[in-house]
Nucleic acid binder design. Structure first.
Length: 623
RNA sequence: CGGGGUGUAGCUUAGCCUGGUAGAGCGCCUGGUUUGGGACCAGGAGGUCGCAGGUUCGAAUCCUGUCGCCCCGACCA
């Protein structure tokens, strides 16, 4: 009589039930030092997707038992998910170390004073969680107020300032791999945008600007190696520096339909930039003003307060001949932005104007300054009542394409015609403020720009001296002179990368893990675990795979084969070995790659050597 | 924060419009039959219908408030 198979479940060994035979203690247990038995591990897979998951990677994270949600943007990394995360973390650590960065660990509870002293408190405070030990928001010497760290510039800079004072100790690059906290306005898509997430953050300190560029390029190269080893194709694109500030920056994007960023690029020329930063060669550098057709002239436009209304009869002014005048408030003072009527403002580009905070002005703020409501605004010298009340008039380069255009008269119901840029507009300075459009000429080659969505998984910034100034991080050079350290900062979203990998590498049945970040590389599916010879063979094959560098999970559950195969596809380990009673009678096991279709039968006698060889090859391929 | 949606068993959900004993599938427990792609039979446990008020003889259902979650926008690794 064959004993009824027991259900593999955690606690089985500690909870024998009468009439249910226990498996004998593991023979050859020494071989199982690293190998995991599924029945004694914990992989809670789900047949159905949770209702709150929208995108494939989020559904798969939950279905494959990698994560569980605690609340919005808060996730527990389950044992299998944690292993994948650890793989990614380790690769990151290796690449950072080999690029010369030094690992440390900083507190995540930050005294708020440090942030108040830093350069971005006003802009960053909204996204920061506050931890107040008294609970009443009042700060006393006994009850300091803390914030939870969203990144660590404000911590590392004072540290380096006190610890490093000589050029002899520079350059240095410190990094940590740790939890970050951001009170995201809208957490989304599982780990993609979470309130608490795992990030690698690095900070470089150099004596000179050229040194800072070298550090930056070293990080860029390290990032490229990291993403290649993880098995994801992330591309470096030019990016806006945002709230971090700094002089230039690249984002690493994983192309994916569900990403929240637009990457503007041209395949052939290699140009690639985040939409916020992207520019085009629309305006020739040597463009001359067109000849004014006559004096500026006011005309009545009752009720016409939109670009479209002026395009229509009876006015018939094409949008690309209209000046669009927008009013913003920067650090408390209004300023104007002028664009072509047919163009859209790319708000992030206003960051280059140097305001700490800016926002669109309200109609109530506009009327007293300009004398008219939105829809009739303009920036001609003649119509600006109080130029001194403005922080500036900033014009997009593209308006130089307009000759004899139309703009608001700063008088409700009236516009001006025959307006010419140099002759008539009170422009403080020109800049790139417009949002590029697909098809416009790429700034590198003039070929048409394309667009695709991407997930931002890494970001590198050359910061300059923005933080070292605030914290007075200086060093002494060999001439006994003091100088500010030149900084860079670098981040990789580790937990986000894990999800990006899944988003990029899955099929209808489940995840298809790349070799290097798979939680285990090899799954040994034992269809008849009650047969001692089957388990014995599983252990031998597992040992062969481990000895050549793979991590091994043995599915020894007393489940039906269908269940095991479905779970195997779902959790997506790269190499599956199947050991079944039928195969054993024929003297074969089966070998199948998750990414492929072929099932290869391998004679038992050759199986260990074959598995070792396959593992060796796969590891070499993955780098 | 603005707009839209949603909350019923561990998971996926029906019921709500038109008020009257809270239903199913998956999962779980017991017994049996099965055993190479999410088995079958029989039996069973599990829900104060997010929370608080209100209307009503009676509320999962109608009303008010509140909280959570999801989606669209601004922010970010």
């Amino acid at each position: 009589m064959r004993p009824r198979p027991t259900r593999g479940s955690p606690g089985e060994w500690g909870r024998p039930s009468p009439g249910k035979p226990l498996r004998p203690p593991e023979a050859g247990a020494s071989l199982l030092r690293f190998m995991k038995l599924w029945s004694q591990f914990f992989v809670p897979t789900l047949k159905e997707s949770p209702a709150d998951a929208e995108i494939a990677s989020h559904k798969l994270l939950v279905r494959a038992g990698l994560v569980r949600k605690l609340g919005g943007g808060l996730y527990t990394y389950m044992p299998l998910g944690l292993r994948a995360l650890q793989k990614i973390t380790q690769i990151c650590r290796e690449e950072m170390d080999s690029a010369g960065a030094i690992e440390l660990w900083m507190p995540h509870l930050h005294p708020v004073e440090l942030w108040e002293q830093g350069p971005r408190w006003a802009a960053a405070r909204e996204i920061m969680f506050r931890a107040d030990s008294a609970g009443d928001g009042k700060r006393t010497s006994k009850d300091p107020e803390f914030v939870l760290g969203p990144t660590h510039e404000e911590i590392i800079t004072p540290l380096v300032k006190t610890e490093i004072t000589s050029y002899r100790d520079l350059p240095k690059n410190f990094y940590q791999i740790a939890t970050k906290f951001r009170n995201e306005i809208r957490p989304r898509y599982g780990l993609m945008r979470a309130r608490e997430f795992i990030m690698m953050d690095a900070y470089s300190f150099d004596t000179t600007d050229e040194g800072a560029v070298r550090s930056y390029l070293a990080m860029k190269a390290a990032y490229e190696k990291f993403f290649r080893r993880v098995g994801t194709q992330a591309i470096a694109v030019e990016a806006d520096t945002g709230v971090m500030g700094g002089s230039f920056s690249h984002e690493f994007m994983v192309p994916a339909e569900v990403g929240d960023d637009d990457v503007i690029y041209n395949e052939a020329s290699g140009y690639a930039a985040n939409r916020e930063k992207a520019t085009s060669a629309l305006v020739p550098a040597d463009l001359a003003d067109s000849a004014p057709a006559g004096a500026v002239e006011e005309f009545a436009t009752p009720g016409a307060v939109t670009i479209a209304a002026l395009e229509a009869a009876p006015f018939n002014v094409p949008a690309d001949r209209q000046f669009k005048t927008l009013v913003y408030v920067g650090d408390g003072k209004p300023f104007l932005v002028i664009l072509r009527g047919c163009d859209e403002l790319e708000e992030a580009k206003l960051g280059s104007l140097g305001f700490t905070l800016f926002r669109p002005a309200t109609p109530e703020e506009i009327v007293p300054v300009l004398g008219a409501k939105p829809g009739s605004l303009g920036a001609t010298r003649g119509s600006l009542k109080e130029p001194g009340a403005l922080a500036g008039v900033f014009a997009d380069h593209a308006i130089r394409l307009i000759g004899n255009g139309v703009t608001g008269a700063n008088k409700d119901g009236f516009h001006l015609r025959n307006v010419n840029v140099s002759r008539d507009l009170a422009i403080t300075r020109f800049g790139d403020f417009r949002r590029v459009r697909v098809g416009e000429p790429d700034p590198k080659s003039g070929q048409p720009l394309q667009v695709r969505r991407g997930i931002e998984v890494g970001h590198i910034f050359k910061l300059g001296t923005k933080y070292s100034e605030k914290f007075n991080a200086v060093y002494t050079d060999d001439q006994k002179q003091s100088h500010l350290m030149v900084m860079g900062c670098y981040g990789i979203g580790i937990s986000r990368t894990m999800q990006a990998v899944i988003e990029q590498s899955h099929d209808a049945d489940g995840i298809v893990w790349p070799w290097n970040c798979a939680p285990f590389q090899v799954l040994i599916c034992v269809l008849d675990p009650q047969l001692p010879e089957a388990m014995e063979l599983a252990r031998r094959l597992g040992a062969a795979a481990e000895s050549t560098g793979a991590d091994v999970l043995i599915d020894d559950r007393a489940e039906r084969p269908g269940v095991k195969f479905k779970d195997a596809d779902l959790i997506g380990l790269p190499l599956r070995l199947t050991i079944g009673g039928k195969g054993l009678k024929e003297g074969v096991i089966e070998l199948k790659w998750r990414a492929g279709k072929d099932v290869v039968k391998v004679p038992v006698a050759e199986a260990e050597a074959r598995v070792a060889a396959e593992v060796r090859e796969a590891a070499a391929r993955a780098g």
